[in-house]
Design a protein around this nucleic acid. Structure first.
Lengths: 236, 236
DNA sequence: ACGCGATAAATCGTACATTGTTTGTGGAAA
DNA sequence: TTTCCACAAACAATGTACGATTTATCGCGT
């Protein structure tokens, strides 16, 4: 792995080789980012001609990008009335965290039983970078944390589960980028990562799975609390 | 619920209101069925002009349908080289069964705690129809069985999980339609359904969740064995 | 047999026609 | 005067047609 990509969050191998039309692919990514990052408001209408003009193409690439996003659940369609942004609200986030709590322990269990010395070394290296960064750069932390978990799930035989995890992860990464980490959460993350590595080393699959379950749940709780707080502040 | 739709498999409420273009929607369904049912071979090229001609439309609706299918994972794209059918092979089926084993117990647990008298009555009614049919009509059994589980998952608050379950279910339903049920599997299904109803009545959420886990796993094993057997027969 | 170039074919982007929806205005009734 | 409805005009989604560019195929020559 090259030095630059060593901490860069990348999808597990074989996932999402967005092969589509050169224009279509970038359009897909641009619109998707706009939705996830919140630059496009929830339920906002996605007018094909506007998007085409804004991105300097004609309507067909936009239409295809929107259909693709529909298939992935980021956009809703009503016949003859076009597309709207599916809101990434607390329910949305809660839903995918809950799915993570169900799936990630299973992925972890498999990893513990399959981990090589290099895997463990890589985990420790990444954890070292995470501690070195120590939440100074939130985006970097997010990338490193994603990389940490990707090491564990990347080679799992269940590509669907891994892909599901990755797609959810991307959404959560973007959402959590809007918030900061509480001190309590920072401590929990460090502690749990170290404990996880210990379990992996010892081959304690069940303990690792339990730990991941708590880890994901804690992460979800944390983000949801922040969303709730911000909503309350906005409403008040 | 009308009498005709009483045993007809329908998606949980609020799922997949395929709003797209009238033509586009049917095209999407047609192509998707062709993939799931195996009428379109694995990795077969999906030539836009051919599909358009075959379905009597122009190319644009086909293109959008393919992008939608891409988003849902039934079709793969390579830039400037078009679309191919993603093979629904043993790995594919195993993957989504495993995800079901992880997710369905959680859905079931919630249902047991929320089930009303009407829910239980509906389960018993459907189970009555299942026993009455007794695998005489495989397609009908499949519809009834899906309806049975839909009753349990349909109102779950986690719409993502429910939708995930439904999408997987549709694939598995189509795949399993190609096979028959062994006597052992038939007995297990009947036994487990009855036992499940008993657990729901008694409010035993954990027992019901465990049972569903075994139920889904058994179902997966059964289908995979059949696929394996058929592949061996084809190869031999 | 193995490149290699011409030809065929398919994708991708653009422009346009058609159809359905939304909006805003005017007039009639309350 | 206000409210409601009808109707028309603007608007946007959907379907069609076409040209440009890329890829695949096939026959030819070495």
């Amino acid at each position: 792995m090259a030095e630059t990509s060593a901490f860069k969050a990348e999808p597990p191998e074989g996932i999402d080789p967005i092969g589509a039309s050169s224009e279509g692919a970038s359009l897909y990514e641009l619109i998707r980012e706009d939705i996830i990052e919140g630059r496009l408001a929830a339920n906002e209408r996605l007018v094909v001609t506007d998007l085409a003009r804004r991105h300097g193409t004609s309507t067909n690439p936009v239409r295809e990008a929107l259909q693709l996003l529909r298939g992935e659940g980021f956009v809703t369609f009503v016949a003859n009335r076009g597309a709207r942004v599916r809101p990434i609200d607390q329910d949305f986030v809660r839903d995918i965290y809950e799915i993570g709590v169900l799936i990630e322990p299973a992925l972890t269990r498999w990893f513990v039983n399959m981990a090589t010395g290099e895997d463990i070394a890589e985990l420790e290296r990444l954890q070292g970078l995470i501690e070195e960064n120590n939440f100074a750069d939130i985006v970097r932390h997010s990338e490193l944390d994603t990389a940490f978990h990707t090491v564990m799930y990347q080679r799992h035989y269940n590509r669907h589960a891994a892909e599901l995890w990755w797609k959810h992860r991307e959404v959560l990464r973007a959402v959590s980028r809007r918030f900061s980490f509480t001190l309590a959460r920072r401590a929990a993350i460090m502690r749990e990562h170290r404990e996880l590595i210990a379990h992996v080393k010892a081959g304690n699959a069940d303990e690792a799975a339990d730990l991941i379950s708590r880890h994901v749940e804690g992460s979800g709780r944390h983000v949801l609390e922040q969303m709730r707080a911000r909503n309350a502040a906005r409403a008040g």
